[in-house]
């Protein structure tokens, strides 16, 4: 039972990264929303999680070296805690940040974790940061990005809290599902015993993180000019 509760909690970790846009149908739906639509918002949250590649990349980096379930639970819970706080607090408190900059930071989080996995902090910079607070902090950024995007739809006050909570739970559910798939894929990869897997995987992850960051910074820069 305790384990079940933990799994449910942990699922809630949902960083939603909308570096990818919201599709047109979802956009229309959100803009016409009036009142509480728990099922629909749950689905949108879950879909966002499962199709949010930047979030998935970060998760893959975080769990890459984690073998014990308890470790996975701790990290994912920290991430969930961070992003849930800023998602709910951000929307309810009307806090908006620049979506380009937030997504750039999220891209950096991917590169950061890949660099860490390669041993970069220990061997090049001479220190090993504690990844737990860092995962929490990146979780806060992920939630803030989500809160900013959601506010663009100017969700009606009518049913806002239940819609938000449903969305957040959907995100958690989607994250659980995505996490299972990522762990499965990583196990398969390890099974193949490919030489240089650690280096290749994390170098590609770092590349993706840098590209995402550059993409978002270009967007920010062009939107300012």
């Amino acid at each position: 039972m305790a384990r079940l509760v933990l799994v449910l909690l942990l699922g809630s970790l949902s960083p939603l990264l909308w570096a990818h846009g919201v599709d047109d149908n979802t956009r229309t739906f959100l803009q016409q929303l009036d009142g509480s639509r728990i099922g629909a918002l749950f689905y949108i949250g879950a879909k966002h999680m499962v199709t949010g590649y930047d979030h998935l990349l970060f998760l893959a980096g975080v769990v890459f070296f984690l073998r014990r379930r308890s470790d996975i639970l701790v990290y994912v819970s920290l991430f969930t805690l961070g992003h849930s706080l800023t998602l709910l607090g951000g929307v309810l408190g009307g806090i908006r940040v620049n979506a380009w900059l937030i997504d750039a930071i999220i891209g950096l989080s991917v590169a950061w974790k890949a660099f860490d996995n390669l041993g970069g902090f220990r061997h090049l910079l001479g220190f090993q940061p504690d990844n737990r607070p860092i995962t929490l902090i990146f979780g806060l950024f992920h939630g803030l990005g989500l809160a900013t995007k959601l506010q663009e739809f100017e969700l009606p006050a009518n049913g806002l809290l239940s819609n938000l909570v449903a969305f957040n739970i959907g995100v958690e559910a989607g994250q659980c599902l995505a996490l299972l798939l990522i762990l499965l894929a990583l196990n398969w990869l390890r099974l193949l015993r490919l030489p240089g897997l650690v280096v290749t995987f994390n170098a590609l992850l770092m590349l993706a993180g840098f590209v995402l960051t550059g993409y978002q910074l270009c967007g920010f820069w062009l939107s300012q000019s």
């Binding site: 070296f65 984690l66 390669l118 041993g119 090049l124 280096v199 770092m206």
Partner: peptide, 19 residues
Amino acid sequence: MNHSAHSPLSAAALWRTTL
């Protein structure tokens, strides 16, 4: 994190990979 204690890359290779 439970990283393997040693890095998979030498310092030089790490620099090169990152750059």
